[in-house]
Structure formats: structure tokens, C-alpha cells
Design a protein around this nucleic acid. Structure first.
Length: 236
DNA sequence: AATTCCATCAACCGCCGTAAT
DNA sequence: TATTACGGCGGTTGATGGAAT
């Protein structure tokens, strides 16, 4: 489709902010394609949405990241990789863009320097990717997971199934088939962590992803820590 | 005081998945 | 089934300001 010509770009003025804010207050969030017209702004829908979500939204927290926030980001990133919107969903008041910027300007360097000190031979983050939906649709939520040993057994079975399936696929790309959104977050993270528990109980398949052993050693610690800090949002 | 370098972060771009038609 | 429009995401860019020279 042809792009509309003559749309304003770059930094937002106070007047534009005021117009956008007033529009959202009046009509609510969403229907972003209508926002420029309703607000009287010469901006594209994406620009309006971004400005609202990253700057004007009333719940946005300003100022320095706290130590516990940074800590949480590090842990989440270890689990999820660059899935900024998912990480942001677990840190109240911080946007995905904030977290991404903070990661790129602070934490990635911190991580680099610490990994050089501690494990000079490991220069890559091992990200646990959620399992395919075909399996995760049956995946258990964390709370049930913890409370039910039978379900743990089911997770182990799923893990084995998944490993069998992965064998026939490009091992570095298998997770790309996932269809994942915020609604699936708990499921997917729990699915990822089912791997951890499966590992702890000694059932992990020998058809493991490359470097998985070292990954799980680290994640064991992370897992304990996340449970202790009450990070997880349990299902209903 | 002037210039260069670097870090930060707001904003843009291109792509993808989904829903509607 | 194919096409189109929209919302949303992550990667990247560029403006800005502060530190260093």
C-alpha cells in the first residue's frame, strides 16, 4: 500500500502530546488508525501509538532503574532472550522500549564483562525457548505444576515428545514455529521451565540442544531465585 | 572555549501474525 | 484461498547532552 505523504516525523511537540492525550482520554486506547484524524495530528498511526505507550501513558514509571528491576530484567532475559514486551509485562511501569534501551546501554555490557570474568569460554547467552504450541496447549500452569507430581510426570513426557520432534528439524530454528503472545506468556514460560524441572528430576532426553547442560545448570539457580522472589504471576 | 567522543533514549522502520472481507 | 488492513514487536537510527581532550 502506498504510504501517505507529508506526515510529520521526529520529536513530538508539547502541543502534539496534548492533542494525543486528549484524544485517548476522550475515545480510549485502540483503533490507532483513527487516532491521527480524531486527534487532529499529522502523524501516522504507529507514531501515535508509540508515543502514547512509551511516553504519555499515565502508568509509565520515570527515572532510574532500581537494582531489583535490573536484576529481574537480567533473569528474564536469560529465560526469554530479547522478548522485550514479555519482559516489560512483568515489570510495572516500564515499557518494552525502556527495557530494551536499558539492556542495550547498561545490562548487556554488564553481562559481557561478568561473563568474561566468570566463564571466559562462554560468550553466548543460552536462551530457553518455549516449546511448540502443539505441546504447550497441554502444558501446565506453574501453580498446578508445583502442586501436582503427576503433572510433572506429564511434563517430562512432553519434553521427550518434543525432543523426538526436534530431532527431525533444524535444531537452532525449531522454536520459530511458535505462535506466542502475551496471553500465552504464563504457558510458555512454564513450558520453558518444565524443561528445568524435567532436568532436575533426571529425565532430560539425551537428544538435547547444544550446550543445554550448561544452560540448565545456570537456570537451576535462576529458577530457585524466581520462586523465592515471588516473581511468577500464577494463573487463576 | 572548541572539538571530539561516547552513552542514552525517543522514534522510526520493516516485518509478522491475525482478523476481516 | 487470496488479499488487505491493522496492531504489535524487535532491531536500528539519529538527536542530544555530557565527558574527555
Amino acid at each position: 500500500m502506498k504510504k501517505p505523504q507529508g506526515l510529520r516525523k521526529g520529536a513530538w511537540s508539547e502541543e502534539e502530546d496534548r492533542l494525543l492525550r486528549r484524544c485517548i482520554e476522550k475515545y480510549g486506547e485502540g483503533k490507532w488508525h483513527q487516532v491521527p484524524l480524531k486527534a487532529g495530528l499529522n502523524r501516522c498511526r504507529k507514531s501515535c501509538r508509540l508515543r502514547w505507550l512509551n511516553y504519555l501513558h499515565p502508568n509509565i514509571k520515570r527515572g532510574e532503574f532500581q537494582e531489583d528491576e535490573a536484576d529481574l530484567i537480567m533473569k528474564m532475559h536469560k529465560l526469554l532472550g530479547n522478548r522485550w514486551s514479555l519482559i516489560a509485562g512483568r515489570i510495572p511501569g516500564r515499557t518494552a522500549n525502556d527495557i530494551k534501551n536499558y539492556w542495550n546501554s547498561h545490562l548487556s555490557k554488564k553481562l559481557q564483562s561478568s561473563s568474561k570474568k566468570v566463564t571466559p569460554n562462554v560468550d553466548k547467552i543460552q536462551v530457553i525457548r518455549p516449546q511448540p504450541r502443539s505441546f504447550s496447549s497441554n502444558t501446565l500452569s506453574l501453580s498446578k505444576f508445583i502442586s501436582n507430581g503427576q503433572q510433572l510426570q506429564q511434563q517430562k513426557t512432553q519434553r521427550e515428545q518434543c525432543d523426538t520432534m526436534k530431532h527431525d528439524r533444524d535444531q537452532s530454528m525449531w522454536w520459530k514455529d511458535l505462535i506466542l503472545d502475551d496471553k500465552d506468556f504464563n504457558q510458555s514460560v512454564c513450558a520453558a521451565d518444565s524443561n528445568v524441572l524435567a532436568t532436575n528430576s533426571g529425565s532430560k532426553s539425551t537428544e538435547a540442544m547444544p550446550s543445554e547442560n550448561t544452560m540448565f545448570q545456570d537456570i537451576d539457580v535462576l529458577w530457585e531465585d524466581l520462586l523465592r522472589t515471588g516473581f511468577w504471576i500464577m494463573d487463576e
